[in-house]
Design a protein around this nucleic acid. Structure first.
Length: 209
DNA sequence: CGTGAGATTTCCT
DNA sequence: GGAAATCTCACGT
């Protein structure tokens, strides 16, 4: 709680933030002194200007209006008829840039995450490594949906705490996942060799900070 | 392990 | 009307 990122963190350059978020803890308070906590291990940057893959590219609409609001808020979108994914709004207010959180390493509240993600099922798909290794999976595990859209990360429901990556870890960089336009931009960042990074790209480029 | 199709709704053209 | 910043299951190797 004392390391909670403040508004000014989110007003920086989007690529610096996407890198700095790696290793940080995403926290949700679920009552009774209980928390869901995951370490951010994969992010993607989306920009309003000249980035056709971004939801904000064509300007403000009802769906993406949170992206054009104040930084440090959560932009949650619904896609493929069934999934939610969450972003952190970044840059100066009104700019329309955001960072997609693509994967987490579960740290605390794991039983609660399991319950949200898999229900009461105890079959073999309910596995630890499958809990939060994708943008829609982590939203399910954290109970993030329509009603969390627009939520202020400088509040007391969901927030991010500052942490750095370990000395033994390297940052990988690649093109973004699952898009048709803007494919060429290497704006995906992840902690190399972390088991929870989504498995769709085997790029091995190392990002030098 | 890799590939392919289906699920299912919202938003914008 | 069609695509979408995805995931899961089934099936073939």
């Amino acid at each position: 709680m004392n390391n909670q990122l403040s508004r000014s963190f989110y007003q920086n350059d989007i690529h610096s933030i996407a890198v700095d978020l790696l290793g940080c803890r995403l926290v949700r308070y679920i009552g009774k002194d209980s928390f869901l906590i995951g370490r951010i291990v994969e992010t993607e940057a989306y920009k309003q200007k000249n980035d056709p893959a971004s939801h904000s590219y064509k300007g403000k609409t009802k769906r993406n209006e949170v992206m054009f609001g104040e930084p440090g808020h959560l932009y949650v979108y619904f896609t493929y008829g069934m999934h939610f994914c969450c972003n952190v709004v970044c840059g100066p207010a009104g700019q329309g840039d955001a960072i997609l959180i693509r994967a987490l390493e579960p740290l605390e509240g794991i039983d609660e995450m399991m319950k949200r993600r898999f229900g009461q099922l105890s079959n073999k798909k309910a596995q630890y490594h499958n809990l939060t290794n994708g943008p829609a999976k982590l939203c399910k595990a954290f109970g993030i949906g329509r009603s969390e859209n627009g939520l202020d990360l400088c509040g007391k429901n969901i927030w991010i705490e500052k942490e750095t990556i370990y000395l033994s870890e390297q940052i990988g960089r690649s093109t973004r996942v699952g898009i048709k336009q803007g494919k060429e931009f290497p704006w995906r960042y992840y902690i190399k060799d972390n088991p929870w990074v989504s498995n769709t790209d085997k790029s091995v480029k190392i990002y030098e900070k």
